[in-house]
Design a protein around this nucleic acid. Structure first.
Lengths: 330, 330
DNA sequence: TTGTATGCGTTATCAG
DNA sequence: CTGATAACGCATACAA
């Protein structure tokens, strides 16, 4: 493989001239640049990335840190969708995305090692592995980073998240606009932050919502729905906090010979894993997680460019996907 | 941050001695090594990975090339499970895994760029982006690589895949051992290689299997099953080529008031996305895709160590997961 | 607009 | 067992 030196010799110019020409410096004449590039192409010259990284003092890469244990992709495909989006935004500007597993237990050591050894220019960190200690480390060391998901610990971090409260609002407003007033919410336990945030949003639009909670499982969705149907005044519409509850809910409705759409409306959040496959296909309020990854990548790029930048955060906007499970009450 | 030079100065030894001590060379006395490492730790010295990469002439990293378009993680979580496994095997030996999107259209240019610029030491390539042209490039250039999934083009590649034919055999043998002789296979079209391979396996154990084909959708699973139930001699057991067909199949059976287990047995492949959630939970023949990723990572490591190594391939072994949908016929 | 010279921080070879 | 020194290939500040 040809080196920059050989190209310079062939073109009869200095090494630095070749370097500048390849990097599109304006201090080299257009003609010269064109000529050098032609010769480089002819010689099959490709700059050595290892040398560039060393000379530039920057790797042009970012590490995505998260738990990558067995079954992670099945249990949380959203995360990998975010990773795909981030890859896209980073690659677009010549940055590589390195995927690295870590625990909340070793996250600090891992981050220190990456930054001390200068293996990457920035970090994308999934909120599930963020600890209080890490938040101190990140803010004290001016490490370019974006946390994916709102971190519980540390208000001084850069993070990006979706707005579950707003999602709840949108779901409730949709039902309200269809004419529903008698609505029930089937949610997870009060410790389930996502479910609770969605509920807060729902209540802000429909304060009189009936609320029932349980485990976020298909079975519980079925049980809670059955319970709900025994109420004196049966709800006209149901909001399920997630897909699993919605699946159980739909099953219970079908067993009760209720027709979703004619008799009752049903709305839930996100399409994964069932909403699209269920019959009827469910109306959902969804997050574009790929887009969220893109935004994370872009934010990280700006953090890398100006590491002195202030703490910042970014929130993605949920979208209503109308399908066949919501209609006006009869 | 301290450099190797400062550590050497502090320890009163040569730079090369520090380098060797840090890398655990046997040519340095144990005492000296311990002393130098202690001083290095005290000074907070971490070797600069950018300089190491440059000096060693190796990045200690691999690139995973595949299509990372929007929805990739939802549509194909298996692939990300493989990625997670590969990450684990590579990281274990100090290799980083870089994730990079690419099309079958630009795969050759991408591979050339990575290898010419020496950005990585090896490649993991998803079969879906492998072209004939790429297979020529890979075999001619002695590029360390592992293709994930059996490549259609190019027999001279290194690849790893699961054995769908064997999966079919295992499913059929399970039914046979339970006592079933009257079995039907509900599969995708003849162009669906996975479905066809599974069918070949099934037929090798149960040659008289009734075969029906259709689109791999829930609706078609339902339609085909209904058709099957109209047959003069109803099958005792059904093999569905995938989860979607199985879902539709189960729905049709329930609508026909047939009791899965008492009246009929049902077996399918892989747990994703429904098999675990369905009622009854389905017996499946599954692949440990995470383990497959680990094997891919290990194989790549050996390719990197000896690039002159011969073409090789590796096949993972499917496993029968007995659940509540298969029993002896009555 | 182009060329010169220096630095980037290790690793590895070879001599002692 | 240890040290001196030459790569490694490019970017960049500064000089011309």
């Amino acid at each position: 493989m040809a080196t920059i030196r050989e190209v310079a010799q062939e073109a009869g110019v200095a090494i630095s001239t070749v370097s500048k020409a390849m990097n599109g410096s304006y201090t080299i004449s257009e003609e010269q640049t064109k000529n050098i590039r032609k010769i480089a192409a002819r010689m099959g010259y490709t700059p050595n990335a290892r040398a560039q990284t060393f000379a530039r003092q920057a790797t042009r890469s970012a590490v995505f840190l998260t738990c990558l244990d067995r079954n992670a992709a099945f249990e949380n495909p959203h995360m990998f969708e975010i990773i795909s989006g981030a890859q896209s935004a980073l690659r677009q500007k010549g940055y590589a995305l390195i995927l690295q597993h870590c625990d909340y237990k070793d996250i600090c050591a891992t981050v220190r090692d990456i930054m001390d050894s200068k293996r990457a220019d920035g970090l994308l960190i999934h909120a599930s592995v963020v600890t209080h200690e890490l938040s101190l480390l990140l803010s004290r060391s001016e490490i370019p980073h974006i946390v994916i998901g709102k971190p519980e610990a540390g208000q001084r971090l850069c993070w990006i998240d979706n707005n579950n409260r707003l999602s709840g609002e949108i779901a409730a407003r949709h039902l309200y606009e269809l004419g529903h007033r008698n609505v029930a919410f089937i949610g997870g336990h009060e410790s389930d932050r996502i479910s609770e945030d969605r509920l807060i949003g729902v209540k802000s639009e429909l304060p009189h919502t009936t609320i029932l909670r349980g485990d976020s499982t298909i079975e519980e969705g079925k049980r809670i729905t059955a319970e709900l149907l025994r109420l004196p005044k049966r709800p006209q519409a149901l909001v399920c906090a997630n897909n699993h509850l919605a699946y159980g809910c739909l099953t219970a409705l079908q067993e009760a010979k209720l027709h979703v759409l004619a008799d009752i409306s049903l709305i839930t959040f996100d399409d994964y894993p069932f909403a699209l496959y269920m019959r009827p296909a469910l109306t959902t309020v969804s997050i574009d997680v790929y887009e969220m990854g893109i935004q994370a990548g872009k934010l990280l790029r700006s953090c890398i460019k100006k590491p002195e930048m202030q703490i910042q955060s970014f929130t993605t906007v949920p979208v209503l996907v109308k399908r066949a499970s919501t209609a006006a009450p009869n």
